[in-house]
Every structure is written in C-alpha cells, then in structure tokens.
C-alpha cells in the first residue's frame, strides 16, 4: 500500500514540474517572437566610454550607472560572512586534515605569490579588461583558503587574523559609502563618479574612470576578506 502512495506522490511532483515546464515553454515561445527593445543598452554602448571613462562596460555599469546595486551586493556578502562567523561554536573543532607530502607544501609556496599577482591584476585592471572587484577579491581570498587547506586552520588564522578580516570588511564598506558621499560633497548626487566633475582621464590608461578604480579596489579587498572568513567559518563550523 505504501508503495502505491509513494508512487502517487512522485507522479504528483513530476506532473507539477512538467506543468511548470509547459507554462515556461509557452511564455518563452510567445516572448521570443516579440522584438526585444534595448535602447538603454544602446546608450550605454555608444556613450558609455565617454561618460564613465572605463573601457570595460560591465564594470562601468556595475560601479557607476547602477553602483547602488553593488552597495546592496556588498552588504549581502558582509551579512553572509557575519552570519557564518556568528553560527560558529566557541569550542575548537579540528577539521580532519590530511597529512600532505612536502611536494604539496612547496607548490603551495609557489602558488601564493602567483595568486596575489593575479588577484591584484584583476582588481586594478578591472575597468580595462574583464574582471573587476568581485572576481579579483575572490582570487585574493584563495590565498588564506589555500593555506587553510594545506596547513591547519590555526596557521592560516595566525597569518590572517579574523579580527583583521572583519576590520577590512567593515572599513571597506564604510569607504564605499564615503566615496559615495564624495559625490554629494562635489555637488552632484550620491555615488556619482561619472557625473561628478572629476577628471576622467583618457579611457585607455590605468588611472582613468574617476572613482571606478578606487571602488574596484575597495570592493576587491572587502570581497576577499569576506570570502576568506566564510571559508574559515565553514571549516570551524562544528
């Protein structure tokens, strides 16, 4: 008897999902015939480089046209790392680390400087080539993560103290808002880097794009500290 009931419940769920699939197929089919208007993106493409000074349009959209989203975004990461740090129990729980050979330690010593260079490249050249604050920050966060995996967590916590990470995160967010207020101080609205009468420099070079470069660095450091804290809290998480 239970088997039939089980079968019936499974069929009920499959039918629900198939119904959803048909509904979505119908919606996509109808939508696909309509011509998709994209006058906003045409404006970004044609005038994006002059208005914001950044070559990489995705970074100019993220850090200048819609930088309020990035502020909300950075708050989500800060809340996530605060939740995970908060849920960690106080007593020490050792992760069942495996004993690695000497080769692993040596390669780890080679990898760390490479990661540092790659991460800072992605952050600093965020507005010139693909990359940006979020990606570069996570690559920078790989350094403490690799240390936690190869050595025990105490070593990585010794090198990058948890307090320093929390301080970096909070300072990063405060600097993000202060840079936003910089827009108000120079007369135009909050978070204005293209519109505030700041020299945008000529688009190709490194120092160009007004505040985008500083915002990139701040978000990079902040995301790096946040992701490293999330990884360590998950490991210490009872």
């Amino acid at each position: 008897m239970i088997r039939i009931n089980e079968m019936f419940k499974k069929l009920y769920k499959i039918s629900l999902v198939v119904l959803l699939a048909i509904f979505l197929l119908y919606v996509f089919n109808e939508i696909h015939d309509l011509a998709s208007k994209s006058y906003l993106s045409e404006h970004y493409i044609s005038k994006g480089v002059q208005e914001t000074g950044a070559i990489n349009l995705v970074t100019s959209v993220l850090y200048d046209y819609r930088s309020f989203d990035t502020l909300g975004e950075a708050t989500v990461i800060l809340t996530a790392s605060a939740i995970l740090a908060f849920l960690v129990p106080l007593r020490k729980v050792a992760m069942h680390g495996t004993k690695f050979l000497i080769i692993v330690h040596q390669t780890m010593i080679f990898i760390v400087p490479y990661l540092a260079v790659l991460g800072s490249y992605l952050i600093l050249f965020g507005h010139l080539n693909p990359g940006g604050g979020f990606v570069g920050g996570v690559v920078l966060a790989l350094i403490p993560i690799v240390m936690t995996i190869t050595y025990c967590i105490e070593f990585s916590e010794y090198k990058f103290k948890p307090n320093i990470k929390t301080l970096l995160e909070d300072l990063g967010s405060i600097c993000f808002i202060i840079l936003g207020l910089f827009g108000i101080v120079t007369g135009s609205n909050f978070l204005a880097s293209g519109q505030s009468n700041l020299g945008l420099g000529n688009p190709g070079e490194l120092i160009s794009g007004g505040l985008i470069l500083c915002l990139n660095i701040i978000i990079g450091i902040k995301v790096g500290a946040g992701m490293a804290k999330i990884f360590n809290s998950l490991i210490k998480g009872e």
Partner: peptide, 23 residues
C-alpha cells in the same frame, strides 16, 4: 530630495561602525 538617500545609508553606516566597534 536629498534626505531619501540618507534614510538608506544611515542604518548601513551604523551597522558597519558597529562591526568595527565590536572588535
């Protein structure tokens, strides 16, 4: 209206300052 942004930024700033003051 200038104050509309402050309604969102002030709690954010306080939250971050509290994060530092915890340490």
């Amino acid at each position: 209206m200038e104050l509309a942004v402050w309604v969102i930024i002030l709690p954010l700033l306080t939250g971050f300052l509290l994060g530092i003051s915890k340490l």
